[in-house]
Design a protein around this nucleic acid. Sequence first.
RNA 1: UCCUCAGUAGCUCAACGGUAGAGCGCGCCGCUGUUAACGGCGUAAUCGUGGUUCGAUUCCACGCUGGGGAGCCA
Length: 471
Amino acid sequence: MAGRGARTLACRVGTHADARSVSFRAATGTERNDPMPYPRIRIEDAAHHTGEPVEIAGWLYNLRKSGKIVFPLLRDGTGIMQCVAVKANLDEALFETLKNLTQESALILRGKLRAEQRAPGGYEMDVEGAEIVDRVPESDPYPITPKEHGPDFLMDHRHLWLRSKRQHSVIRVRHEVIKAVRDYFDSHGFTLVDTPIFTPAACEGTTTLFEVNYFDDEKVFLTQSGQLYNEADAMAFGKVYCFGPTFRAEKSKTRRHLTEFWMVEPEMAYATLDDVKQLAEDLIVFVVGRVLENRRTELQALERDISKLETVKAPFPRMSYDDAVKALQARGSEIQWGGDFGGPDETMITEGLDRPLLVDRYPTQVKAFYFEPDPDRPELALGVDVIAPEGYGELIGGGQRIHNLNLLLKRLEEHKLPPEAFNWYIDLRKYGSVPHAGFGMGIERFVAWMCGLEHIRETIPYPRMLYRTRP
RNA sequence: UCCUCAGUAGCUCAACGGUAGAGCGCGCCGCUGUUAACGGCGUAAUCGUGGUUCGAUUCCACGCUGGGGAGCCA
């Protein structure tokens, strides 16, 4: 066990030059005294090392062979490198070892890099040496073959599926989206103030919550939104955001739902609905731009139609709820004024659009208790939804919050919410209350839209859904 | 919770109520430029419980497991 752990560690630290000889010994189990003729590189940096002898540590993605020449495809987490091993140039034992490698075996290959048009990534390594770190046995081969598999099988093997090119690309896009979101807020005067995951009561009353035993007698719930805390934090810091996991115990069973997902929620003091609309548009344009700038390779691997993202520029079209209902009815929807949009409605309303749509001023009855009413038409809430094009649905939901004490108390009563549970929230309306606004953006839906995925389950490393909590 | 579709080899799929097939994987062999390489040979299977029938992978009922959708939402 100790030896195995050491090996793993050695591979991880192997990119540091000083750790080279240590990692080499650890990886091979043999002593070597020669200096380091093959510095280790990452495949994504191959272009900077053409003509140089290098070493790549990774896993066997696939192996093609033809008699006295074999093509191991080596995967290192940053890309895939086609390598070439020619029998005449290698000692026989090594050639035989390479020829009989099994899929996903861990190995280190050494040789010279060369630009090569025939190779998938544009570069190729002429193999001069190899170290097998861990060979997968034929008796228990790697289950995910380069052919087709069904969703159930793949989800059962999610821990291995992440190694495949497609999943790898999706997760890297996810990383880019998250980083871009954080960069945006960090550079626009927002302070990160995270909100609790264990919460004493429902934030919004209606939605189903996951209940957790909290020591002996107390029940707590997993958060479904950080918003109420965000409002307190905005009064302390001006502009804040929280970013964390969110839990919904709804038995939703669609391609747009997870029971555990990640949400970013900004909140601003001294802000109105218009400020939030502006912020939402700015944020989306920025994040899409970052993905296009830094993750083009991944989008191409996913066969995403990039032109559909390149049109995402300000300004976004805007529409009132009133007009949206009329437009939907004109297109044949069953929707009545006063109802919320269904999935098909969201798709229909954005049809023909090349960027997201902002719909604002919804009927109060379909929105949560904390929405500020429109001063001109009190039956409307100052809320806004941002709906993605191409049928990806609601990306953002938010709006302006009630800042008047008496109105808030009235709404709590109307929604049959116990005021004592909201004492701290009510305090915010007593001590320097100001107009404030914010929204929540679902990261997975955003990533699904970026990647052009059918189902949201591929956008999170380990999805939690109605019928799936493993692996 | 409701509607709908599907469960056959390790994987992806075939098979009129009448002898369960193929591709991939895996094993052996061949091949010095392969691109989910290719060619040859071999390996391995009907979700569960009842029912209809001379005979059920096929038809029926229930159960289990999953896919898609509705409601709700991000």
